[in-house]
Design a protein around this nucleic acid. Structure first.
Lengths: 225, 225
DNA sequence: CAATATTGGACAGTGGAACTATCCAAGTGT
DNA sequence: ACACTTGGATAGTTCCACTGTCCAATATTG
């Protein structure tokens, strides 16, 4: 297919696709002359992936590029997801580094969990930085709470890794790597949304045991559908 | 204290603080004349809160403003968190609306969970949009997986709400509301970081039962500390 | 074969977000 | 008296993610 159809199928304008080509986010098509190239289904998929990572996961384009490069060059699931997580660390990273105290807390937590992480792991730093932020605003996370989160999240991570490994039937390593990375990233909004929905529900069940709430009490605008 | 000291204590430049004042993120100080105002500890706290929400939670300034306004005007925990979640919906929201199919999936899931949410709830739409994104990139989330996530996250939300309610001793509603909202938001990076750390650990334990990994196999740069 | 449309490539321009800088007149401290 | 600080207003900067324009080469259509 040509550029025009690629634009039509992806829903993106031709200038935007050209921009992604320039930025190295989309591989070039097959040149059929000096001023013409053809594209295929892989380009459509790549464009959809770029938009999902930016629009839904909220990644920036340079992060998307690093994640995509990581997928293309990864040798294994562990490589790819680790690499993707490292790239993801960059999100909003012009703030202060974490304190030694919270880094020590994180190390201790991982120790108790039986998890070994080399010092300086980007996610450990993000975690420590978040604990610092809670301290700084005067709402520190207690050791109990942190412990609870670690234990509650552990089975999620466990199950996710097992899903991927049970999907591995020997071949299609490329597809598996992409699948693992993309699922890992795009599931983040799913988890956060489920948590927010759950909180509101539990809270409402505690606050309003009576089910007769006037419709004007609702806090979000009505959707027309 | 004066502007200069507020700047020193918060670590933000005077022009930046002036900018936050203009944007309505920081309440004005107490005017002591036409060209002078004094600020207090509450202004320092507010500035730290703004930076935590932008740097750590990745919120945009207009979202921060809505969250802060919600805290200041909320009557109850449920109000405040619900309002904050509604404001948070705006993150990355110029993309397509969710499909009817995924909205129906979400409705069914909530039904099974025993959760009642009015149609059009922003978090339900975010969830549906994320499911659509997974479909679009060719890695759909199975019903089993979605069900698993919902069940795994439910106790987290439950515990979190119970923590807040056990903290409520009658007064200091303002502080409780802020605490609940700030904790809810700033815990999101904690949860995501724990999940990523957990995944890498489970994955490594499956991939490399032998603990003698050469140091050049590590995928993140060494930190000097 | 001629007229019209499309493409790749280069480059400049736009709009939003979050600051950052400059001015100035009113006021403060010494 | 006089340098210094502040509030208020306005303009400028940087980064990001596009968007628009131009042109020569090439396809497509008549």
């Amino acid at each position: 297919m040509w550029m025009a159809e690629l634009s039509r199928l992806s829903g993106l304008s031709v200038p935007t696709i050209k921009f992604y080509l320039r930025e190295g986010l989309l591989p070039a098509g097959t040149a059929t002359g000096a001023t013409r190239s053809t594209y295929d289904e892989s380009h459509v998929r790549r464009l959809r992936l770029i938009r999902a990572l930016t629009d839904v996961a909220g990644l920036r384009l340079d992060t998307v590029k690093q994640v995509l490069d990581g997928i293309d060059s990864a040798e294994s699931w562990h490589d790819a997801v680790g690499s993707a997580h490292t790239r993801l660390a960059g999100t909003g990273e012009d703030s202060a580094p974490p304190t030694e105290a919270s880094l020590a807390r994180v190390d201790a937590l991982l120790e108790i969990q039986g998890w070994q992480l080399a010092p300086g792991h980007p996610q450990a730093e993000i975690l420590a930085r978040a604990l610092d932020a809670l301290d700084e605003v005067g709402h520190p996370m207690s050791e109990d709470m942190l412990w609870f989160y670690a234990h509650a999240i552990r089975p999620i991570a466990m199950e996710e890794v097992l899903w991927v490994h049970s999907d591995e039937h020997g071949e299609e390593i490329e597809a598996d790597v992409e699948s693992a990375v993309v699922r890992t990233i795009l599931t983040e909004p799913v988890i956060l949304a489920l948590r927010r929905i759950g909180q509101e529900n539990v809270s409402r069940q505690l606050n309003e045991p009576k089910p007769d709430v006037p419709p004007d009490m609702r806090m979000w605008p009505e959707r027309d559908r």
